[in-house]
């Protein structure tokens, strides 16, 4: 069936099964490979995107459930890596292998949008994405830097 998804501000009519997780529509149908597959069960967060501004794990979100909504992926966070979180991530040298970082960044952006000055406990609660390289201390520091909170 044809289904129209609004991705990064553009409508994309897709001939796709409605149960297809948004992750695979992004990666395979639209070539937006910045959003990663890690677990397929909503555990790791590597596939995190924004749906109407909320952080959502796209591997567990069927496309039929987001047809009327606005999806934003890592590719559209800024045109030039200028988002405060992206700048903090570069300045703080957060990524190692980098594979989980798209999801980590999308989760962090959603957190700051909702809570511009998060406490450590707020960060603990919001950033449940898994990183095998162990970037967590720098993730925390970069979120605080982007929020203008002294470390």
């Amino acid at each position: 069936m044809t289904l129209t998804l609004n991705i990064n501000g553009q409508d994309h009519p897709l001939d796709i099964d409605p149960d297809t997780p948004l992750l695979w529509a992004l990666r395979d149908n639209l070539g937006l490979t910045g959003t990663k597959y890690g677990c397929g069960i909503g555990q790791c967060g590597a596939c995190t995107v924004h749906i109407d501004g909320q952080a959502v794990r796209s591997c567990a979100m069927p496309v039929e459930a987001c047809a009327a909504q606005r999806v934003t992926t890592i590719e559209a966070l800024s045109p030039d890596r200028s988002h405060a979180i992206q700048r903090a991530w570069i300045e703080g040298q957060v990524p190692q292998c980098g594979y989980c970082q798209s999801g980590m960044i999308m989760a962090a952006v959603a957190l700051l949008k909702e809570n511009p000055k998060p406490s450590d406990a707020d960060i603990d609660a919001a950033i449940t994405n898994l990183c095998r390289c162990g970037t967590y201390p720098r993730v925390r520091a970069a979120i605080k830097a982007a929020a203008g909170i002294a470390a």
């Binding site: 590719e75 890596r81 992206q86 570069i90 980098g98």
Partner: peptide
């Protein structure tokens, strides 16, 4: 600053 990091914050790697 590491040379590979910019591509890891915008999904382009």
């Amino acid at each position: 600053l590491r040379q590979d990091i910019p591509g890891k914050v915008d999904g382009s790697t």
